[in-house]
Amino acid sequence: MKEELRELWRYRELLFTIVERDLRIRYKNSALGFLWSLIIPIVTTGVLTFVYGYLANNGVSNFSAYVMAAYLPYLFFQQSILDSAQSVLSQVPLIKKIYFPRELLPLGIIIANFIHLLLGWLVFFAFLGFIYIRNPQVNPFQFSTIQLPLLMLISLFLSTGLGLIVSALNTFYEDVKYLTGVAMYLLFFLSPITYTSETVAYSAINQRTNGVLFSLYHLNPIAALSTGYRQALLAPVSITIGNTTHPPIGMKPMYLYIAAAVSVVALIGGYALFNRMKWRFVERP
């Protein structure tokens, strides 16, 4: 693996070029171009604010911010994995003609998506600023926001590791792409994105199992990360189920450590698997 990493470093210029190319192609034939990267999170924030403010108000003020805090990193994860799946397969004609480290294809796409996540956070903090201007009594900005880079690093490792696995497997077995599509879909609903982890903690089934379900639930790194992002970026909220209002409960840091460990294992394992398979990409039947 050391040799492979050295080779990767030698080709760093190409990695930047692939990222640049990916960002260019994405909006190549559109009039607004790169602005779309900002428009999508802006529109999402607007819709969520309308839906959770008027249509599905659950009593939490500015609930749309809570959704965005978990949704933006989830979107990065999902898009990275789905794009990775096609990254090598769509470039088979190219890699049949010329050598470069094959891992640059998924890596470039994941980095491009990471740049979109950064733009998403830009919109998110602008939104918090907007909330602050409308209601200056409460400062929505949290000191714990300094944890954000660490959380993003965990997300990046996890996405890269799984992205490498999916891109290698999908080159030979195209069912993998559809399988990951379904997995992403399920993961979205099984993670606290449109609801809070408190909802899970106070659910009847969790009370019956003495909190075992809540623990198991957060073993899913995406669930742990969603709660982690929310806790870092926003003030804790009380939630109301039925007529009772429950105080916020924090997630134990242990679950974030587990998520971090899983992401490191995914990264190393994914890179090892990719390197084992990459020479056969050009020989796919």
Binding site: Y173, D175, R284, P285
Partner: peptide, 8 residues
């Protein structure tokens, strides 16, 4: 023809 999941 193409390695599908079936082959796997």
């Amino acid at each position: 023809a193409i390695g599908g999941l079936k082959t796997l």
